[in-house]
Design a binder for these strands. Structure first.
Lengths: 338, 338
DNA sequence: TCTTCTGATGAAAGCGCTTTCAGCAAACGT
DNA sequence: ACGTTTGCTGAAAGCGCTTTCATCAGAAGA
């Protein structure tokens, strides 16, 4: 490792014949310098290949130009897209994204928050509103800008969607099509307020229509395609199987499509399926998946923007609720249209 | 923002009645302290809610406990999985992941490298071996541990797969099934050595079998499902369309499945399709996708481990080539079996 | 001509931690 | 009994930068 001695601020200062303060200003507040000085400093910095030391800057200025994000997992189309959007938005302003995942463990989330807080992030993005009290206490004590996503808690700033409405829209669509026995595959409800809300929304819609979503028609599964298939299998194996299924996430719904196909059940003739998320994939599977579209990318963009605004002490909306929208495709049709 | 004054090392030291050095040791090298002192310091730290300042630690110690990763995009099942694996592996050792993406732009990659270098990462993961000379120069000059993934360049340490072999396996499989006109949908080849190698491998296999893969049977597409569909459409619209298709990534192959389905072409009877990647999804689409499986998660794990080993000055293999493996499913079958 | 600004720059004091280097007591060796 | 080693702890010097605060020309005002 022939690590060349790092060029530091003082080297540039010496080279340019100015003080360290001037070089510092050339980087952070160029408008304070005379054009000539600025040009000279920049030339020196360029020639020496100067790269400011982030740790030192962070220590001296109290800002790290880094935003933290803690998600259940990166290995999910949803969170991956949201993080990509965040990262892209942040990068435009010179911020970097520090990520951690907790795999649906509140304790791991606390750990992650502690780690990111220690790393001096300027702001923190979290998913959902439900978490260990420790975590919340840590967050509040830090006084750090925090943005919750997907679900808010009324306390922290949030960029959300109405998950209950999403569940409701899915259910209402099926009800309107004449379905009466509707089943739902949800993610494990513990430590997942998004899924709980979607389920509650669907249930409320059914009850408002004089129907119901009994626990026997709800299965909890791991948030994977295989989970969706397994859930679908369980519901179809019921004595009186549902005529329509709601997937708490699109992946579940796609799993249902596969399972139905494997069983020789034609969708939508033999079974209607509706998802929630609006994955790209959902438009391409066959039959095309009817789903409640969620603006995942925008959640990421907005979370990033909100966080940066908070860092800059600009006012931000306490909670931004992004719209969800039913997208009807081929996977759902009126009951008994044979 | 009622940001409570941050508890600092000196506060803990005072509270515990020891020097700052002792508190510092309690955190980083507890074995140097007497059990009693250690316990006392820990109790104080705990009670005061002390959280070490990462920037200060990084500045003083020269280590940030942060690893950087730069990928084309986070919004891809492949990179998302690799990053999730990296993150999980790193977290176990107290490291955090700083991510950036470049969207297939060499200039953006240079930018990202600069940003991460400045942020004082202890190591850097990059995808592929091809990049702007600036970037390479920057990397070398920094002397930082760097691990390339998917493709190596013989210079930097790398955790790779044999992309050419992957392409070759896909092609050989189809050749063995009797296919003679084989088409391929590849990602844009510029700034994507993985795709170039896969294409080259497929082409080599065909030539070895006395066949060929003319440019007319190769289409370049954006790395999305829609790209796969579009590519498939182009190839099927040829006067003499291929009887089998290789997708440079599974997503392409899945797109082919959709496009074929939309055209009323039955896979595999009317068209054989093979992918490369081994997405979870590929096992679940119908027909199940024949694909060359790539151990994506292991690439991430190994990259993380390698990077940590390099940071610790432990010896590491210059290049680890992970195995790829053909997984035959239903989407491919002998030619003309009707 | 003599203040009073204004704009550009420098000196120097940290930011919160790590890490030599020393010091000191207790344990050891002979 | 007297050097030596060993184990634990403290003092203090930075790490590389930012940011007051002070300075000092030159421009502007009286």
């Amino acid at each position: 490792m022939v690590s060349a001695v790092r060029v530091k601020l003082s080297d540039v200062a010496r080279d340019a014949g100015v003080s360290a303060a001037t070089v510092s200003r050339a980087i952070a507040q160029p408008e304070l310098l005379s054009p000539e000085t600025l040009a000279r400093v920049r030339a020196s910095a360029q020639r020496l290949g100067y790269l400011p030391d982030g740790a030192a800057r962070a220590l001296a200025s109290g800002r790290s130009m880094t935003i933290g994000a803690i998600v259940p997992t990166l290995d999910s189309a949803i969170f991956a897209r949201a993080l990509q959007a965040m990262q892209a938005t942040l990068a435009q302003s010179g911020y970097l994204l520090l990520v951690a995942s907790h795999e649906a463990s509140p304790a791991a989330e606390t750990q992650a928050v502690r780690a990111l807080l220690g790393r001096g992030v300027d702001g923190l993005m979290l998913v959902g509103a439900e978490r260990a009290p420790d975590t919340t206490a840590l967050l509040k004590a830090s006084g750090l800008p925090v943005v919750l996503t997907w679900c808010g808690d009324g306390h922290f700033t949030a960029v959300t969607i109405d998950n209950a409405l999403a569940g409701r829209l899915a259910a209402q669509h099926l009800i309107k099509l004449g379905h009466r026995r509707i089943g739902m595959i949800a993610g494990h409800l513990q430590f997942n307020d998004r899924q709980r809300a979607r389920l509650a929304g669907a249930r409320a819609a059914l009850e408002e229509a004089g129907l119901s979503l009994p626990d026997s028609l709800v299965v909890e599964q791991a948030l994977t395609l295989a989970g969706g298939r397994a859930g679908c299998a369980m519901l179809l194996d019921l004595d009186a199987p549902p005529t329509a299924l709601i997937g708490g996430i699109d992946l579940f719904a796609i799993g249902c499509l596969e399972e139905a196909h494997a069983r020789g059940i034609v969708v939508p003739e033999g079974l209607s399926v509706v998802g929630i998320d609006g994955l790209d994939m959902s438009a391409h599977v066959s039959p095309g998946l009817t789903t409640v579209h969620v603006p995942t990318g925008r959640i990421g963009n907005l979370a990033a923007q909100t966080l940066m605004a908070m860092v800059a002490n600009r006012p931000v909306a306490k909670e931004t609720v992004l719209p969800v929208e039913l997208v009807v495709r081929r996977s759902s049709q009126p009951l008994n249209r044979t």
